[in-house]
């Protein structure tokens, strides 16, 4: 009712998010203020269902805060966030979402069997004990040992077993691979991807290690300084950008071909007389002899935006890219 003057827009928004094809996660004007200031401010985004979204950003960008908002662990100071159209604190939303927190909290004094029973007891409306036990067994973890005695990798496996036992439609993974050795990383990612392939669930995974997302994610949400910097389909975003390499052009202020608009430059680095720049521009650059332009890899795209000193331009570059 507060949004009375926006009611039509509101209805459209709700209809879109509750329909089968609606977004798994949607935020409007989302903001959180802590005593130290705004951790997230004026965030707008929608994440489609059935995709694996990479939530990227430097430390302190607000990635964990966003997860806490999406799970109802934290209430927003401004705006709203919806999970399949529902408020995260509603039972419906809680039932459909599983969350693996960064520190993978478990009860150290519970045995593995008791930890799985915890999952069953707290998810009485739906719990798949078979899947949970299968995930635990495939890691050769005995059911009668205390969780406190397990290794980090084994704990991650237990935490994932809890998450998958819940049969979620949306799986939120906050830095799932941090603190794991490369072998276990591969194993854990294999586990996640197998479940994703089996059930077609939506996954949002945060990481600050960009390389490990390359082959997994097909959608991007890049946070920087508490704001959304980049959001969209990974391939499409790569296609909208160009990585330009060539000799510095002294006649333009940005050192790039005149055809490149100044606002499209995301990041540029000069070494000697050579310049490498990530631009949100796919048009002609003129002199083909002097300039090499190619679509960036996902890693190059992310690093460029993470390094960028230019403030996020909101929707403008998207339109420029489409033009």
């Amino acid at each position: 009712m507060m949004w009375g003057f926006l009611s039509m827009e509101e209805d459209t928004y709700r209809a879109a998010s509750t329909a089968a094809g609606g977004p798994a996660l949607a935020a409007r004007g989302l903001g959180v203020r802590f005593r130290s200031g705004w951790a997230l401010e004026a965030c707008d985004f929608t994440l489609p269902t059935g995709r694996v979204t990479a939530l990227v950003g430097p430390n302190g960008a607000g990635k964990s805060t966003l997860f806490h908002l999406a799970t109802g662990l934290l209430r927003p100071t401004a705006g709203e966030i919806r999970v399949f159209g529902a408020d995260p604190v509603t039972e419906e939303a809680r039932r459909r979402v599983a969350f693996l927190a960064q520190d993978k909290p478990l009860y150290p004094r519970f045995t593995v069997a008791e930890t799985l029973r915890f999952g069953r007891e707290l998810n009485r409306s739906g719990w798949d004990m078979e899947s949970a036990e299968r995930i635990v067994r495939s890691g050769n973890i005995p059911l009668d040992v205390r969780v406190g005695t397990l290794s980090q990798g084994q704990c991650t496996r237990i935490a994932l077993a809890l998450a998958f036992g819940k049969q979620p439609d949306l799986l939120l993974l906050d830095e799932p691979l941090a603190d794991l050795d490369p072998l276990v990383r591969r194993e854990v990612m294999g586990l996640v991807m197998a479940e994703v392939a089996d059930r077609g669930i939506t996954v949002v995974m945060s990481s600050h290690i960009v390389a490990e997302l390359e082959n997994i994610c097909d959608h991007l949400l890049l946070l920087k300084d508490g704001a959304v910097r980049l959001a969209g389909d990974a391939q499409q975003l790569c296609d909208e950008h160009t990585l330009l390499t060539g000799h510095v052009d002294g006649s333009t202020p940005h050192g790039l071909p005149r055809a490149v608009p100044a606002g499209a430059v995301v990041d540029s680095a000069v070494t000697g007389r050579q310049i490498t720049a990530l631009v949100r521009y796919t048009g002609p650059v003129g002199d083909r002899e002097r300039w090499v332009g190619e679509p960036p890899t996902l890693e190059e795209l992310l690093l460029g935006h993470l390094r960028s000193q230019v403030p996020a331009a909101g929707d403008a570059p998207e339109k420029a890219g489409a033009a």
Binding site: H68, T71, L73, L122
Partner: peptide, 15 residues
């Protein structure tokens, strides 16, 4: 302190 609220309160049962 141990962060287990993040585990217990993201299950089906609520706060």
């Amino acid at each position: 302190e141990t962060g287990t609220t993040k585990l217990a309160l993201t299950q089906g049962a609520g706060l």
